[in-house]
Write a protein that binds this DNA or RNA. Structure first.
Lengths: 279, 279
DNA sequence: CGTGCCAGGTGCCAT
DNA sequence: ATGGCACTTGGCACG
């Protein structure tokens, strides 16, 4: 019933004594539709005993158990397991951005046969967590050496907005002077601190996306903290965010705080071609 | 210096594994080391024109651009691209749990050749976001029909702790009576509300993991909200969490709030064998 | 290491 | 759709 795809198992060389890998080795080794024993053998040779770090991927029907911060069970289904170089292990179902089960980096994977199942135990010793993935049928397994030294560059984070305000406080209001960034208080770090044109202290809390109740409370606590010791001092608090729900707006009002619409206003989507070039 | 590992590379077929799919198709079709044109052809036939939904995976050297809520660029490197049935697209580097770039479900992928690169455009119309992945070299591509109807069952979420307290409030303290769950206030939803043995109102905020400053502030706001209108009324606030940092403890103290250690105390990790069976 | 806090957070469920 | 909030949040920067 299987399609006519050649199987890349060089059975004739199995256990062969000497093989000198050529200088340019393929980055990917794989098996198509292997049995559980073949899979284990493959993984041991291509990943466990590999001289170079390799990323493992297994596609097949599996069951997953997890225990640690919580406990979970996932019944049989076809998924993709990826075990990365750093021990990160993720299991992906055919939909959804989030892995249905995972272990974060620092985990350690071991491979074995258990009740005729190809089983991967991923243990995170430090976090005292473990995950077990048992495959009863493997559609495909492959191991890849992946060379990737690039890191993503992102524009539009909160840091960028804070930068923008730092270099031109007038964006918030005329006469505003910023004197401190990440100012420490007992209830956390203030994004921006300064004085308005009347020398009244101003606390600014910046959010890159929609304002939340929590942000309003944060801001209130900062202002309250600063007032401490001289309680009737006037201190302004400004929540700086591109969008704000009604409820949060009311809260700010109640607390005597202010809101400035300020966001990326990004015309990021519409200009399709050249927009990403200019960094 | 390399150890003696045999290579599972069918060199004689390198760059080609083209075939006419039979009526009864396997769940996985793939190409090993295809060119960009081959890849496009494969994807069009196996994914775009496929009668069944298919998950696509591409392993190769690519560049990624994104624009939407923010804007990002990722230079050349070897990664795994997965395009799921629901449009979810994720790009994984060889380490880290999080995809370096992604589109959430609801996105739509289109495939094309651009400047001799196999390019995948993933557009999320509703969110006004787009991502472009361009491959210059493809190590492997495959398309899989994945059958997975299972959903993960989890124990140990906040909901479970709240349940536990609901059914036995004495766990918090003797004589406690819970009357409301998810009680609405202007500053958010109270996890649990009730009265202690002296009929003093009690607000309980539950956290499944370590307490945060934000949680303390939340709790404080709930209590403040309830006091409103009759300001000197006595209302207790209890933060219920397995662990609490010193700073948060001090905050609670300042606010006149209380802390109860209450967590999963999970012996989840140590009993390895049978622990996951008992649901 | 813990602690604090942002994230293109994501996902779930409520109105 | 919008909002409120938990998450095995993950990740980073800092003391």
């Amino acid at each position: 019933m299987r399609p006519l795809i050649h199987k890349n198992l060089p059975l004739e060389t199995e256990g062969a004594a000497v093989f000198i890998p050529p200088a340019s080795m393929g980055v990917v080794e794989y098996l198509y539709g292997p049995g559980v024993e073949e899979t284990l053998d493959f993984v041991v040779r291509q990943v466990v005993q590999s001289p170079e770090k390799r990323v493992l991927m297994v596609l097949g029907s599996c069951q997953v158990r997890y225990q640690g911060r919580a406990r979970s069970f996932l019944d049989w289904g076809e998924r993709i397991l990826i075990v990365k170089e750093d021990g990160t292990s993720i299991i992906h179902q055919p939909s959804g951005r989030e892995p249905v089960n995972w272990q974060p980096h620092g985990a350690r994977a071991t491979y074995l046969l258990q009740d005729r199942l190809f089983t991967v135990h991923v243990v995170h010793r430090k976090n005292r967590e473990r995950m077990a993935v048992s495959f009863k049928k493997i559609e495909m397994v492959f191991a890849a050496r992946m060379d990737d030294r690039a890191r993503v560059q992102i524009v539009g984070m909160e840091r960028d907005i804070v930068d923008k305000i730092m270099e031109n406080p007038e964006l918030i209001e005329p006469g505003l002077r910023i004197t401190q960034r990440e100012k420490k208080t007992r209830s956390g770090l203030i994004d921006l601190f300064g004085y308005d044109r009347h020398h009244v202290p101003v606390v600014i809390e910046v959010k890159r996306s929609q304002a939340t109740i929590s942000a309003a409370q944060q801001l209130r606590m900062y202002v309250t903290d600063l007032k401490r010791g001289n309680d009737k001092a006037r201190i302004r608090g400004i929540l700086c965010t591109p969008r704000i729900p009604e409820m949060v707006c009311r809260l700010l009002d109640d607390y005597g705080l202010e809101y400035r619409e300020f966001g990326w206003q990004h015309q990021l989507f519409d200009d399709q071609q050249t927009s990403l070039e200019d960094y």
